[in-house]
Design a binder for these strands. Structure first.
Lengths: 125, 125
DNA sequence: AGCATTGTTATACTTGGGGTATAACAAGTA
DNA sequence: TACTTGTTATACCCCAAGTATAACAATGCT
């Protein structure tokens, strides 16, 4: 499994899980229609509690990234771009730019990083 | 004072404080050498506890954004760009790009937002 | 000298989030 | 039937966040 958890991180386990699942979807390592491991088996693999995995999965359902059924959780992006999401993304950009300007990072460096990260995510930019 | 706290937010008060101070510095509303309000007076204005403000100020000192003396806290960017900061910025960019790709936001839209936010921060981009 | 203000330190308390541990349940599935 | 799925409920622990007070040393002001 492509998911790795850092138990000592300040970032909640379910958040780490969410981020890595999203990343895997973007990279194509998880495809639409693909079933995710059951909450119990993934929890076992990661060495965490069942409820922690379940919380992450359900949050992804709320975000419109997964759908659930009795058989388990499946990858499917259902939510389209909304005003809320746009506002959230803009807030993230502002936060990033503030850090960039505070530390006086050059425009070019940021664009270079962005390009390289987009490549890693196997996406055009 | 330009700082406003949302008491009901999930974001810790001291984090909101830090973000707004950084933003004010970037926008030029707080200039290098300028003294910040004392922990007690700002806490009073914001309606929060003294220690909460103090925690935020001290974190900004650790980030190299403020310097402290017996007389109070002063704006002064001391820390230069480090590997740690670069890695942190790249992580933020990746997180942002994952969200962008997940929601299928266009390249142009992101660049447009970025430009508009940079303008708001009164910075060239 | 006296007083107010600064940040500092210490103690104590409450609240809520994150995480774990178990257990039992209904509903599909082999 | 037996297994696996997600669901729900209860109970517990730990720690971050925040508040509330109080006392202290150092600085600045009058």
């Amino acid at each position: 499994m492509f998911i790795e958890i850092e138990p000592t991180s300040q970032i909640p386990i379910y958040t780490q899980l969410i981020n890595q699942i999203k990343k895997a979807i973007v990279k194509g390592e998880l495809e639409t229609g693909e079933m995710l491991p059951s909450v119990r088996s993934l929890a076992g693999d990661l060495g965490v509690n069942m409820h922690t995995v379940n919380k992450g999965y359900n949050l992804l359902v709320n975000e419109g990234v997964l759908v659930k059924s009795q058989r388990g959780y499946m990858v499917e992006i259902t939510k389209e771009l909304s005003d809320d999401i746009e506002i959230e993304l803009q807030a993230k950009i502002e936060e990033l730019l503030v850090e960039v300007f505070i530390h006086d990072v050059s425009n070019e460096k940021v664009k270079q990083w962005t390009q390289s990260i987009a490549d890693d995510l196997k996406r055009e930019w």
